[in-house]
Each structure stands twice: as C-alpha cells, then as structure tokens.
Amino acid sequence: MLKRSPWQLAHWLFAACFASAMPAHAFPERTVTIVVPATPGGLTDILARLIAPEFSQAWGQPVVVENRAGAGALLGTQYAMRSKADGHTLLMGSTDLLTLPLLNRNVSIDTVAGLQPVGSLASMPLLMLGSSRIGEQSLPKVVEAMKKSPGKFTYASNGIASILQLYAEMFSHEAGVKLLHVPYRGAVEATQALAGGEVDFLVQPATANVIGQVTAGRVVPYAVMSRQRIAQLPDSPTVSELGYPQLETELWFGLFAPANVPAPIVEQINAILRSAMRKPEMQTRLKALGLTAREASVTAFSRFYLDEHRHLEKVVRDANIVPN
C-alpha cells in the first residue's frame, strides 16, 4: 500500500507557485515520449495519440507514443517513473495508477511520491449493470434481493485486485450487501459474462460496447455513478438520486511526469494540454468515444490526484479489501 507523505501536495503546490522564477530554456531539446502502460487500441492509448500531435505542433519537435504494457499498468508506469526528470518522458495514466499499488501487494512503487501530475484530459462515466436474468429492473429492488440472499449474487471484474473489483466492492460496502466475486481476464470478458447470464452484477465504464449491450437488452442499467445522467441512457438514474451519493465517481485520465521535473516545464506542458482540451474538434472526438474533455491547472490536478488517492485508500480500508 502507498506510503503517503503529508508534504506531497505542499511540494507540488510550491513548485507550481514558483514556476515563473525559473526560465524554461529551450524545452524540448529532442523527441518527447508519451508512455502508455497498456496495449494499443485502448482508451489510454487513443488519448495519447490524440494529444501527441498537439505537442508536436506547439514545440516543433517529434512526440511519439510508446506502449509498454505488462503486469497491468506496472511496467510502463515503472519505466516512466524511473526516466530522467527533464520532461522528455511523460506518462498517460488513469485511475489505475492509484489502484494498482493499493490492490496489489507485489507492487512496491509509490505513484504519489514518484509522479508529478501535469494535467487532466478526460473522464468517462461508470455504470452499475445487472444481468437481465435476475428480473429486477431497479437498483433498490436488486439491493433488496441481495440482502435477502447474502452471498448468492455474483459480480464480475476484470481480474483480482482490479479497478472494476474496487468499484463493485465500493457498492457492496455502501449498500450493505455480500456478493461473490468472479474475476475474468479483462473488462470485455466481464461484460460478456454479464450479458450471457454467467454473473449477476458488474460496474463498467460506459463504453460504446457496454452501451450496445444495454440497448440490445442483454444487460440492465441500474445506475450511473456520475453526478449527472448521461445522454446515451437518459432514463438511468444517478447513484445520488438513489441515495448513494458517496458512490459518485468516474474513470479519469491524466498526463504525468516523473517526480522533480522542473516546474516551468510542467507548466508549459500543462498550458499546451489545456489548450488542446478546449478545442471544439478535440471535444467532439472525445465525445464520440464516450469521454468528456477535462482540463485543469497543475495545482488543481495535483490536488485532485492526492484527494483521489486518499479516497480510494479509505475505500480499500473500509471495505476490508485484501491486496492480491
């Protein structure tokens, strides 16, 4: 589990506040690499390839995307964290950066102290889904059924100690129900298992594939875990509407650098990223993927990242989730 330093946010804020005191010089001096700790084709990879040209155009230097998949997001994250702290190696990350060390006892890296948050890119809503074979069409009804039969109902995830397991455990803890975990190799397999009636419950990002399963009637959308309802499923209530405001969360994506990259360079990268996220054409492309563009200052994103770590750490502790 991560060892959080109480001075971490102060360090980030200090660096941001005094960014103007140091000239950025001629950055970048060579090719900049955006490391993606996943295989090509996923959302993290797509986002990296969307923003790489924005940086290349702004700098007049090549910006390449390098996929370093393996051991979840571990291998790519480790590589980026151990790279030279000069801004020429960046990391495209998501919520997994925090859950990986929280849920895997074999992970020794500290993704709070070892990374510098640079800026936010996008977020995606999460859905609470049920199997159509249950017969219940609302979250209150399915919670009632789960309480009557502790341990009978099952939920899928994309693996032991995975992000989808954590989201389901959050629900189980807050709703006061006991569910049986059935891990699958990946998110796609977990969705297929739910659609096929192999399991009863699943928390999944609202991707086009998942929305397609809902509209086809193969799975039931119980709730949206975002603050607002989503356009694709306007009749699906939010968790707050159903009395679970503490379950509000989204899958988020952000750009990171190794710790101790000079603050002026971090601010420069952030400024280009924020400008890119504001472009209507960028927002349109993200919307087509089911994503919402998010942009934030270095200070704001750093605060969000630390708050998110504290929240997820508490979730793991309160739900008694044992790291794998």
Rank of each mutant, 00 (worst) to 15 (best):
A122R: 04
S108Q: 07
V224R: 00
F27C: 08
M128I: 04
N158Y: 00
L50Y: 13
N158W: 05
V177S: 09
M128G: 14
M1K: 14
H181D: 13
V322R: 15
W252E: 03
I34L: 13
K147G: 15
A38W: 05
V188G: 06
L91S: 09
E144N: 04
L312W: 01
W12H: 08
L91D: 00
V118P: 06
I163S: 09
M277W: 05
E308L: 04
A52G: 10
G41P: 05
P117W: 02
V214G: 00
L233Y: 06
P205I: 10
L242S: 10
Q228P: 05
S20G: 12
P28V: 14
S138D: 09
L97K: 00
A293C: 00
P23L: 08
A271L: 15
R185L: 11
G212R: 07
T191N: 09
P125V: 04
T238G: 03
L251S: 05
A187D: 08
S94D: 13
L291M: 12
V298Q: 04
L247V: 02
L242F: 06
G176S: 09
T284I: 14
Y305F: 14
Q228V: 13
T191D: 03
F201K: 11
V266T: 13
R229C: 06
K148T: 04
A259S: 15
Q268H: 03
T249I: 14
K152E: 15
A190H: 08
A168P: 01
N104A: 15
P28S: 15
T39S: 12
A48T: 05
E136I: 08
A208T: 04
L2N: 06
R317T: 11
W59R: 01
S297N: 07
Q61N: 07
E66G: 02
D45F: 11
Q8G: 05
L127N: 02
L47D: 01
G151K: 11
L9E: 12
A276F: 08
V316W: 05
I321A: 02
K3V: 14
T99D: 02
V32E: 02
R294W: 12
L50F: 09
S157H: 12
P150H: 01
M22E: 13
L242K: 12
A48M: 07
T77C: 02
A259F: 08
E169A: 03
R4G: 02
A10V: 13
S94R: 03
T33V: 07
A175S: 10
N106C: 08
V322H: 11
T292F: 07
G76P: 00
V177C: 13
S275C: 04
Q232E: 14
S226A: 08
V266P: 01
G290D: 12
D45S: 15
Q57R: 15
P245G: 13
Q165L: 03
L121F: 07
L251K: 06
V32F: 00
A263N: 03
V182W: 02
S157Q: 12
I51M: 12
V214C: 11
Y155W: 02
S5D: 13
Q137F: 01
L43V: 13
E313Y: 11
V224F: 05
V316P: 10
Q232N: 09
A58E: 07
V214F: 06
I163H: 08
Q8W: 12
L166R: 01
L194R: 10
I160G: 00
L13W: 11
